[in-house]
Computed example of a mutant assay.
Amino acid sequence: MASGPLKLGFPVKVLGNPALKSNDARRAQSNPHLRVSLGYLADIFDYLERHDIRMYRMSSDIAPYATHPDMPQFHSMVRDCAAELANLGSKARDLGLRLSFHPSQFIVLNSPDPDLVRKSIWDLTSQAEMLDLMELGPEAVLVVHVGGVYDDRLAARQRWVDTWPTLPEPVRRRLVLENDDLRFSCADVLHIHGETGVRLIFDHQHFWCFNPEGLGLRDALAAMLASWPGEVRPKVHFSSPRTEMRQLARKNRRTGKAETVNVAPVWTGHADFVQPFEFISFMRIAVGLDFDVMLEAKAKDLALIKLRPDLLRYAPDVAARFGLLAADREELEDEEKALMEPEGSS
């Protein structure tokens, strides 16, 4: 098991400095390239170092069009950037950064359409190749969901199991499977792990949204953490549900005119920030279990930077697990204020 404090991370977009880009988002006619994205990532790594953030999810779009079937001119960009990827990986290791990808919802390994599965495997192979060229350890993973139900959940689950042995070795070595909030529960992914050995990601909010088997939180968490080899620290996903009233534009059926209506929140939606008391309760239930935490709050790095002084204020025992000390509190509060209330704002 990895030693040292637990890590907090966030995905992709940096809100504390909007000038930082996560990937080369230019259209194909402008010849975007992985090399440009790697330059952007190097700047993001500097930002992470300044704010003592040691875990980050890279954009799954850093190699634009690298697997687009109709654009072969982009297909070699990962191999062409081998030296740049090695340099960035060395920088990540020097900074103690834990990195990952979370490929898009279009990556589906249990589809009944073999062409979609083939394309999904191609995308995963490209992303695994980037992690390998960066020379990152087994903690650098590709996070996926099971996929669709396709009118038969058990058959869909079995198709994922059947696809597993067809995956290239670099993909199997990097792939991890997450429980979701609507279709496949912790029990489902634990079943798949038993058939394949794939490592599992416990998602806290998804657990509460979809747990038809009624598993206990600590039991489910412990079982999923145990899917990781002993020398690699597992990680989990944490987010708080959005509680605000939503306002939606709808057409009035009687008048035919557009109007704004108030709608209750959907509990699968993610809040901007992490509700600290919910996080503290989770970490106390999980005492004795080691894992890093990817925060999936909409406020990204700002949510992480706010959570740290909140933990010191309300739960020093939990803060200590992340290497946060009482002496850090004033500095972390100043950091939070500087990013949330930039100079010149009213």
Score class of each variant (00 low, 15 high):
V14R: 11
L15D: 01
N17E: 15
N17C: 12
N31A: 14
F45N: 07
L48Y: 03
L48F: 06
I53M: 11
I53G: 04
Y56I: 12
R57F: 10
R57M: 10
S59Q: 08
S59N: 05
D61Y: 11
Y65L: 09
A66L: 10
A66S: 15
P69A: 03
P72M: 06
P72T: 02
Q73I: 11
Q73N: 04
A82I: 06
A83T: 12
E84V: 00
L85H: 07
N87T: 13
N87V: 13
K91L: 13
K91G: 02
D94L: 10
H102E: 03
H102K: 05
S104F: 12
Q105H: 13
V108D: 01
S111L: 01
S126R: 15
L133H: 09
M134P: 06
L136W: 09
P138K: 11
L142R: 06
V143W: 08
V146R: 06
G147F: 00
G148C: 11
L154D: 15
Q158D: 07
V161S: 02
T166I: 04
R172C: 14
R172Y: 12
F184I: 01
S185R: 00
I192C: 03
I192S: 03
L200H: 10
H204V: 15
H206I: 08
P212S: 10
E213R: 07
A222M: 04
A223L: 08
P229N: 00
V232I: 12
P234Y: 03
V236H: 07
V236A: 12
T243H: 02
M245V: 13
T260P: 00
V263H: 13
A264Q: 04
A271F: 00
V274R: 00
E278D: 13
F279G: 03
K298L: 01
A303R: 12
I305G: 05
D310Y: 06
D310N: 08
P316V: 08
D317G: 14
A319W: 04
R321M: 06
A327W: 01
D328E: 00
D328K: 06
D328S: 01
L339R: 06
L339G: 05
M340E: 10
P342G: 05
S345Y: 15
S346P: 07
